[in-house]
């Protein structure tokens, strides 16, 4: 029974916080652009509205795969979020470790790719192939960068990583800072935000893999993306700031860290143009990998 509560909490809390984060993102974006921005409930209203819309399925597409894809992605995020919540607030933690987290966090991308492929639309196929290339690109530095906290903690499990940071967070070390920067940019790509919104480049390939989705399918995808918008910063906080601490003054710190990460993501997205896919791959396999490797080497040497 506890388990059911956990999952419901993992889903509901993540969804709620994700939608709020999405609002923050949109609002900050609007403010940067001298606009007013959407009302607070807007992301939530969007989802409800999409649920009420008709579902259209592209002719000749595989109906099953087309409709399954968003659900698979949602399941991936729910699992990843639950994993983090459980390890954050349960003594000892269970279910999985750093490796599991990394793998679970690729499931949303996978679902977008599958959905794009199933759409029978050349633009969606192209977008999905770009998404895949992007995954290949950022995975290498992301693994390296998130390995730094693991090295510092000397423990693979998420709860162990959190516990071992109680007397000194990863971001307090030089290697931690470098890794954080790399991981942040990888998160930007994972969220498919500018400058790495290449797969969904609206003005090139019309939302890419999502082009054919409407109604509930799109609602689930959007919900998934909004949940990711919370889950990934959460993951970073766990890795680099020792998790969310909800006691006393630490609440403020946690909030600050979270809002800081989200604000950084938003600012990056608003001050850059979209890059080309080959530039993105070069960027991640070149400077980012070098930086991440340097961070790992530093961490191994205790700097």
């Amino acid at each position: 029974m506890t388990f059911v509560y956990l999952i419901v909490f993992g889903f509901a809390a993540t969804a709620a916080l994700g939608l709020v984060t999405s609002w923050i993102d949109r609002k900050v974006t609007a403010r940067v652009q001298y606009r007013v921005g959407p009302p607070f409930l807007q992301p939530f209203i969007d989802i409800v509205k999409l649920l009420g819309k008709e579902t259209v399925i592209p002719a000749g597409a595989s109906r099953g795969t087309f409709l399954m894809a968003p659900v698979i992605g949602l399941a991936g995020v729910v699992a990843a979020a639950t994993l983090f919540w459980v390890n954050q607030f349960f003594e000892g933690g269970f279910m999985g470790d750093w490796i599991v987290a990394i793998y679970l966090l690729t499931v949303p991308s996978l679902s977008i790719i599958l959905g794009g492929f199933a759409s029978r639309n050349p633009l969606a196929s192209l977008g999905a192939s770009r998404e895949m290339k992007l995954v290949m690109a950022y995975e290498l530095p992301f693994i390296l960068a998130t390995l730094v906290p693991v090295i510092w903690a000397g423990d693979l499990s998420i709860s162990g990583i959190i516990e071992n940071q109680s007397d000194g967070i990863t971001a307090g070390h030089l290697s931690g800072i470098i890794a954080l920067i790399v991981a942040l940019l990888c998160v930007q790509a994972k969220l498919a935000l500018v400058p790495f919104d290449i797969p969904e480049a609206e003005t090139e390939i019309v939302e890419g893999p999502l082009v054919e989705y409407s109604g509930p399918g799109l609602a689930v995808f959007r919900l998934m993306k909004n949940m990711l918008l919370f889950t990934l910063p959460f993951f970073l906080i766990i890795l680099f700031f020792g998790g969310m601490r909800l006691n006393g003054i630490n609440i403020l710190w946690t909030l600050l860290e979270y809002v800081g990460i989200v604000a950084l993501i938003t600012v990056i997205r608003n001050t850059n143009p979209r890059v080309r896919i080959d530039q993105a791959v070069r960027f991640f396999w070149g400077p980012m990998t070098v930086l991440a490797t340097a961070a790992v080497v530093l961490a191994l040497n205790g700097i």
Binding site: Q33, Y34, R35, V194, A201, E202, T203, E204, P273, R274
Partner: peptide, 16 residues
């Protein structure tokens, strides 16, 4: 052009 490049800030600023 900014909009096409996904640089919506430029788009908004220029149009403002």
């Amino acid at each position: 052009a900014g909009h096409f490049l996904g640089y919506n800030t430029v788009y908004m600023w220029a149009w403002k």
